[in-house]
């Protein structure tokens, strides 16, 4: 969905504080994009390397399935931030039918608060899961925490971007 104009209702930054929030979002996005894209490239390479090792050299990698699916989870959950930044988490967009500007903003702000609470709740329960799990990833003989950590990290970043956007949705003047 490269080419889709973000459907987000976040107004473009016109005030100083609003521009600062946008910059923060921009730089976090830079960092997260580089990390997830790097992981993606590594994952493609790993899967291909595993095919070659198995078919060409008959020396299969015992860990390739578990490692690649673990990296996949990191791409997915950390990628939630990048997807939100690009407006790719699509929902029904009919709030424009509300004619009153004030009411519409109130509903949108309320929705944003709800999503912050939801993302924060997911961060919380997955953090507890990490603390309590004893599961192992058998092929690599490492704790499942390495996998599970992708969930709280991803949802914490999602909470963060929702928080950064809340003031702009509720207060910023439409540019």
């Amino acid at each position: 969905m490269t080419d889709v104009v973000p459907q987000t209702l976040v107004p473009p930054p016109t005030q100083g504080w609003s521009r600062a929030l946008e910059r923060a979002e921009f730089w976090i996005d830079r960092l997260v994009s580089v990390l997830t894209v790097g992981t993606l490239v590594f994952m493609v390479g790993l899967v291909f390397y595993a095919v070659v090792m198995r078919y060409v050299f008959s020396a299969p990698l015992v860990y390739s399935y578990d490692l690649s699916t673990m990296l996949f989870a990191w791409i997915v959950f950390v990628g939630l931030f990048v997807a939100e930044r690009d407006g790719a988490h699509i929902g029904l967009d009919i709030l424009y039918l509300i004619k009153s500007e004030g009411l519409r903003r109130a509903v949108i702000a309320l929705r944003q608060v709800f999503m912050i609470a939801l993302a924060a709740y997911m961060t919380y329960i997955s953090t507890v899961l990490i603390l309590r799990t004893g599961m192992q990833i058998s092929s690599m003989r490492i704790s499942a925490r390495w996998l599970y950590a992708s969930l709280p990290v991803g949802f914490a970043l999602l909470t963060l971007i929702y928080l950064l956007r809340l003031p702009r949705l509720a207060l910023a003047k439409q540019g």
């Binding site: 490269t2 894209v37 791409i75 997915v76 950390v78 990628g79 990048v82 997807a83 988490h89």
Partner: peptide, 17 residues
């Protein structure tokens, strides 16, 4: 190429969520 890779992350995250 960078845009293609980044956009793959975006679409994947959105679908996989």
């Amino acid at each position: 190429i960078w845009t293609a890779l980044r956009s793959t992350v975006v679409t994947t995250a959105a679908i996989l969520l």
